[in-house]
Amino acid sequence: MVKPILKLITVAKEVGVVTRKYPYESPLLTEEFRGKIEIDASICWGCGACVKACPSNALTIRESMDVMELVYFAGRCIFCGRCADVCPTGAIRVTKEFELATDELEDLEQVVIHRKVKCPICGKHFVPQPLEKYVCEKCAKGEIPTYMMVCPECRRKVGVKKMIRCKGG
């Protein structure tokens, strides 16, 4: 009976008190920790790559007529950081923030609003403005070629019509 008591006392004495006094002390975070993500709205294209990569549907897209909203719901997030991996612009940054406790689910939402471009032919809204801007820069050095103002469906029709005329006509 005495042996375990002595052993315990020795171990306890050697180790001392190891408790980290969080929240009065800093948490035991390593530099690699993945916490909540931050979306930098100023460079987000609204391409939806993150939405596609998100395993738990924490990132979703809410579409309405002329607006596309990228919604991040931290409450469902599994903090895998895949969104940051795939984001082509680096707009998504993984922070070390983990103090997310709240009594309102709404608090856990982050919304990025994207306005969509309107197709002059059919009047449909189709592409988020920043994505269109990127494509123009990449393919047409910044000017918007006329075809790019038109929605893909109308482009197909216009394109086929043109080809019929020049080849078959």
């Binding site: 975070l29 390593t30 530099e31 690699e32 920790f33 993945r34 903090f79 950081g81």
Partner: peptide
């Protein structure tokens, strides 16, 4: 250690 190596 696991967090240091993997992030979680």
């Amino acid at each position: 250690l696991a967090e240091y190596l993997t992030g979680s």
